[in-house]
């Protein structure tokens, strides 16, 4: 579905943001693009909707070479939700904000209002229909930004650092939403450095560091690999740390597993 073929990109001569990236993301995958700040995560995903074109190599999305396509065309298939909702909210009303992308894509008016209504209900924004977006609270604005992208039902959804400033309950809700969207057959990519969120909710990880892909695979494997995480300048998730501190034979990020093993160590039957 998304293919990176030996892609390299640099913002300024001599300093590479992406080096020889090879990546194959299939349909209906739910994966995290994980890495420290400056690893190249945002640069990578900007190649998927064509905002950036590779300086060498090729990026193919659903069979289309991104070099042969405009951002507007790719955006129809690839929804990119930016980290800061305030970088996109501009309309006079929430309704118009939600309709923005739909109108840009040339959808007929009745289709537009159908989808806008759907989005408002789905994201609990109906009572704000006539309100200007900037009057909503921080969390509501984040919801609105996400809603305005999901509104046009892209096949691929990418979220850039969606968990910053979110409390644990909001993160759980977000994870449930992402799982549901993924369950409908969409590819969902989460760009993040939030190890806990990935450990708790995302099954697959693409690990980036200094512009290169260090590893790609199940979260359970990658997030319990101490050397790998250290070379990526990342802190391991808490349960991985706990696994090591308890000298578990098979370190894990699964809470139930840890409890099971720990209770055996503590001795006797569990409560």
């Amino acid at each position: 579905m998304i293919l990176f073929d030996d892609v390299s990109y640099s913002y300024s001569p001599g300093r590479y943001a992406l080096e020889h990236i090879n990546l194959n993301i299939g349909e209906a995958e739910l994966a995290a693009i994980l890495g420290e700040n400056g690893a190249g995560k945002t640069t990578l995903v900007k190649h998927i909707n064509g905002l950036l074109k590779p300086q060498s190599g090729k990026v193919t999305v659903s069979g289309i070479d991104t070099k042969d396509s405009t951002v507007a065309t790719l955006a129809r298939k690839v929804g990119l939700v930016f980290q800061n909702p305030d970088h996109q909210l501009f309309a006079e009303t929430v309704e118009k904000e939600l309709a923005f992308a739909l109108v840009n894509f040339g959808l007929p008016p009745d289709e537009v209002s159908r989808r806008v209504d759907w989005a408002m209900k789905e994201f609990e924004l109906t009572q704000y229909r006539e309100r200007p977006p900037f009057m909503l609270s921080g969390g509501e604005r984040k919801r609105l930004a996400l809603a305005s992208v999901l509104c046009y039902d892209p096949q691929i959804l990418i979220l850039d650092e969606p968990t910053t400033g979110q409390d644990s309950r909001q993160k759980t809700r977000l994870a449930a939403l992402l799982k549901r969207i993924n369950g409908e057959g969409k590819t969902v990519l989460v760009v993040t450095h939030d190890m806990e969120f990935v450990a708790d909710f995302i099954p697959k990880v693409v690990l980036l560091s200094k512009g290169r892909v260090l590893a790609e695979g199940p979260a359970e494997e990658i997030l319990t690999n101490r050397e790998l995480l250290m070379s990526a300048s990342l802190l391991p998730p808490q349960l991985a740390e706990l696994s090591w501190d308890l000298a578990l034979q098979r370190p894990t990020i699964d809470l139930e597993q840890v409890v099971l093993v720990a209770s055996k160590l503590v001795g006797g039957p569990q409560r």
């Binding site: 900007k46 909707n49 905002l51 405009t70 951002v71 507007a72 955006a75 129809r76 690839v78 929804g79 990119l80 930016f82 800061n84 970088h87 996109q88 501009f90 923005f100 992308a101 840009n104 894509f105 305005s148 992208v149 046009y152």
Partner: peptide, 16 residues
């Protein structure tokens, strides 16, 4: 820098 980010964000929503 911010203007660039905003432009990217709106382009990603189909703005040409």
């Amino acid at each position: 820098r911010e203007a660039q980010i905003i432009m990217d964000a709106q382009k990603s929503r189909g703005l040409e």
